[in-house]
Design a protein around this nucleic acid. Structure first.
Lengths: 181, 181
DNA sequence: CGTCCGCTTGACTCAGATCAAACTTGGTGG
DNA sequence: CCACCAAGTTTGATCTGAGTCAAGCGGACG
């Protein structure tokens, strides 16, 4: 179903635009003309606090739509910045809107995509209310199944909101336990 | 826009059903026939771990749709249980689906609603990656504006993932600082 | 061969969870 | 009107998990 959405988007006219690290996709209150799909690299949606400190609203990596809400909004509600060098697909918002209203399969695919994003984000939020690394890892495993290869643990530490060291230790602890049984 | 969605839903035929605490709305793999809107009380979406421990996927309170993803799914992907006595509005899923496909305003309102839920959930997830109570409270304030009346602080402590005591102390600390300036 | 990055492990420190006890407040019923 | 109860709040004391800094290990890759 989600794949169907990507297939539709593929067919629309689009431009690949590279952005260097630190570049802004758009600013708050800019009028919305395009939608962005991150192809490579990573980006953040940011809102600025009164005193200037930034609050992160979304961390987007390869394969995600940048600000889904902007499909039906006249202006952006936050800033978007490339946190590493990014390649983004730029698609006319009007084109996607038109597709949404003219093609029921796409409308459905869009709704399914959003519902899944909601699920994932809520899942992560609930996971992050757990206090110990052990509980968080359990919850993460319950959702994702199994740990990836050794190269990717650091990223998971970020996902579950702990320091890499804490996660490494928890994993080591488990390997120990597994053997001692 | 979201209000529009509620207006549409109001018009559909619906039944108010009370559920006592601990009662299940549905179980995983049940076929989806209805959608639930929580009117009063609170509920949780839960998935069970291999060893039986439950993982919370969503905490739903008055005014939220229970499992948005189930609009286009044949079976539920998790369990839903009332965590306190609940009054829920039960609406035929087929009716909502029909509305989605036949009325563009509703389809748009649904997409906007979902996009906003995504935003809110991501916001909360990012907030929960902050380490100190002080930072979390700042982020919460940046999003919501101002602290509610005294009776509601405990609920906020839950939202930002800390113990009530920790939040009370942080608030007290700030009142002190505000005066000392 | 050197450098980078992710992993490993140790030591120290501290924010916040937890337990506990008192105090405000509103509401309820006698 | 008052006794009483329940929730939320306040404050104190203690304990611990994990963040941080630091130093070393090993494989990948130019």
């Amino acid at each position: 179903m989600i794949d169907i959405m990507w297939e539709f988007l593929e067919k629309l006219r689009q431009v690949e635009r590279p952005l260097p690290e630190g570049e802004y996709f758009f600013h708050r209150n800019d009028p919305v003309r395009s939608m962005f799909v991150v192809v490579a690299g990573s980006a953040q949606l940011i809102r600025h606090h009164r005193d200037g400190r930034p609050i992160v609203l979304q961390r987007a990596s390869a394969g995600s739509v940048l600000a889904e809400a902007s499909l039906f909004t006249s202006v952006y509600h936050c800033d978007a910045i490339a946190t590493s060098a990014v390649v983004a697909r730029v698609i006319s918002r009007a084109a996607i809107q038109h597709l949404f209203f003219s093609n029921q399969d796409f409308a459905k695919a869009w709704a399914v995509y959003l519902a899944d994003e909601v699920r994932g984000a809520r899942m992560r939020a609930e996971l992050l209310t757990l206090k110990t690394v052990s509980e968080r890892l359990d919850a993460w495993l319950a959702d994702k199944g199994r740990l990836p290869q050794k190269g990717g643990w650091k990223a998971i530490a970020q996902e579950i909101g702990t320091s890499p060291e804490a996660l490494y230790r928890e994993i080591a602890r488990r390997k120990g336990k597994a053997l001692s049984r």
